[in-house]
Design a protein around this nucleic acid. Structure first.
Length: 508
RNA sequence: GGCCCGUUCGUCUAGUCAGGCCUAGGACACCAGGUUUUCAUCCUGGCGACAGGGGUUCGAAUCCCCUACGGGUCACCA
């Protein structure tokens, strides 16, 4: 439908808006009960991409209805962690928005109000059953190998009876009255899914003590916040009929649902702490670039074109469609994650890599932040030689520690020293090379020194390793690594000479 | 156990909706070469999968059914 152009504000806004499909509103609704799990990050990423791609809104809502387990620290960690990944939200507890508050614990009154509506309309009923009775009921059902479910004892109490018990102050829970029939919905990821209502229990919406439960508040809030699409983990698939029934009871349009495949551990079960790190903070602390984390998370259940593995988040936003998401669970491949990390680091600008590595160098005790800043150009050159060799930012300190060592005490790795000692004439060769190096122009470049060194070796009638292996050990104490003359230049000639002289004693 | 979902190389996946373009493509890992003073990068090659069985069809990884296996979920947790 088209609107007649408004005379006072006649631009394209009116018609444009109506021509576009209704703006999508998606959300991520974590419970602040622990560390920021990678599964949450992926769900957030997919929802965020949905909103950004289609010009909609992405909302952060904190599900802290479990008072005992929810903490402010955890909420802060979620906000901080998701932002660190590069996600942003249009509405949330920290940024506000038109449907505030965005913390469920602050919406309790509204939930009670909504429960009252369902009670009044007969879609819900009060249940006076005690915990003991329910426990006994379940125990009996389990013993007879029956499906544990509520037996409907309070489903059709006489109104008088209810009044009397209320007046007597008997505590009650509110249960949803599940109707006969079945619920079918079109899952964005899985296609048509059907649940028979006989399988859906008359579940508790409001506890006797402790307030409204998840399945109830999530729907209340999603309705109030005008959520149009729900992308969440597959563990929620079985909750969907309960929630759809609630939308129907409220007479509210239901959002589209899409259930993402679970992220699995090597044991093919839900990724858990037992089989490696699951918290975003672990990867962050281990030196994974945020870009690699995002890229890898994209690859868990989704593929760009089946061939391109490395891509940026803008490309993901441009191309992501929940309908392309894989249905089967994805086993978390730690090796590939690490490979991707290295791949991303190699593509980053040198200055950025240096900046990201610096904290790890400081934490490794090699230098202070101030020292690195003072020698920023030098440090960048040090990083330059390692950029293509490290997989994680945290790999750097171990690889460049020798630059910070005392010349006479460069730690020699066993394989480096063994390689050096293979050469019988090593001491003489090193001494001769030291004399040669001392005679070179102190400002000579690595290229010039390298070419000169090769000529030196040839003139001495040696093979290249006869010089390079002992020399590499002398300068770096390592068996492999960057161009040796880069090391000489970075070290400064005096230090290089001192290290060679020390090696002449240490390798004797 | 009931219900629901799923099943392509060891792993992540393309191809499945619109059956022939698939003697099933890419990536990680692994193996073998090459490049490099060394290590890493990089290049080349190799290994390696449509869970099984029926059907529909001229033709099935793709559609249908059954079986097997795997996962999720069965709370007054979220």
């Amino acid at each position: 439908m088209l609107f007649a152009p408004c005379s006072t504000c006649s631009d394209a806004v009116g018609p444009m808006v109506t021509l576009m499909s209704e703006p999508v509103r998606v959300r991520i609704a974590p419970s602040p009960t622990g560390t920021v799990h990678l599964g949450l990050c992926r769900t957030a990423l997919f929802n965020w991409a949905t909103a950004r791609r289609r010009g909609g809104k992405f909302i952060l809502r904190i599900e802290d209805t479990d008072h005992d387990r929810s903490t402010a620290e955890s909420e802060a960690a979620i906000v901080e962690g998701l932002r660190w990944l590069g996600l942003d939200w249009d509405e949330g507890p920290d940024v506000g928005g038109p449907y505030a508050p965005y913390r469920q614990s602050e919406r309790i009154e509204r939930h009670h109000e909504r429960a009252g509506e369902l009670l009044a309309a007969g879609h819900a009923y009060r249940c006076f059953c005690t915990r003991e009775r329910l426990d006994a009921l379940r125990a009996g059902q389990e013993e007879r190998k029956e499906t544990a479910r509520y037996d409907g004892q309070c489903r059709d109490l006489e109104p008088d009876d209810v009044e009397r018990r209320l007046a007597a102050g008997e505590p009650f829970a509110v249960r949803f009255r599940v109707p006969e029939g079945a619920t079918t919905f079109d899952d964005l990821v899985r296609g048509t899914v059907t649940f028979a209502h006989a399988e859906v229990d008359d579940w508790v919406m409001v506890r006797q003590v402790g307030g409204p439960t998840y399945n109830f508040v999530v729907v209340c809030d999603d309705i109030d916040m005008r959520i149009t699409e729900v992308l969440r983990g597959e563990e929620h698939l079985v909750n969907t009929p309960k929630q759809l029934l609630l939308y129907a009871a409220f007479g509210a349009p239901a959002p589209a649902f899409g259930h993402l495949p679970l992220m699995l551990g090597p044991n093919r079960k839900k990724l858990s702490k037992r089989h490696g790190d699951t918290a975003l903070g672990d990867y962050r602390a281990n030196g994974y670039p945020r870009e690699a984390i995002v890229n890898f998370l994209c690859l868990q259940g989704w593929a760009l074109d089946g061939a391109t593995e490395v891509f940026d988040v803008a490309t993901f936003v441009e191309r992501f469609d929940p309908r392309d998401v894989q249905k089967a669970g994805a086993v978390f491949d730690f090796d590939k994650f690490k490979w991707l990390s290295g791949e991303l680091i190699r593509r980053q600008p040198l200055a950025l890599v240096a900046e990201r590595c610096a904290p790890f160098v400081v934490a490794g005790g090699l230098a202070t932040e101030g020292e690195l800043r003072e020698r920023a150009r030098w440090f960048e050159q040090v990083v330059a030689g390692e950029q293509e060799r490290i997989l994680l930012y945290s790999d750097l300190p171990g690889r460049i520690a020798h630059f910070f060592a005392a010349d006479e005490a460069v730690p020699y790795a066993a394989d480096a020293e063994a390689g050096a000692r293979k050469h019988a004439g090593r001491i003489e060769t090193l001494a001769a090379f030291r004399a040669w190096l001392a005679a070179q122009d102190p400002a000579a470049s690595a290229e010039v020194l390298g070419a000169g060194a090769k000529a030196f070796v040839a003139a001495a009638g040696l093979k290249l390793p006869a010089l390079f292996q002992p020399l590499r050990c002398a300068l770096t104490g390592m068996a492999g690594g960057r161009d040796l003359f880069d090391v000489v230049v970075l070290l400064g000639r005096e230090h290089a000479l001192a290290r060679i002289e020390a090696a002449e004693r240490r390798l004797a």
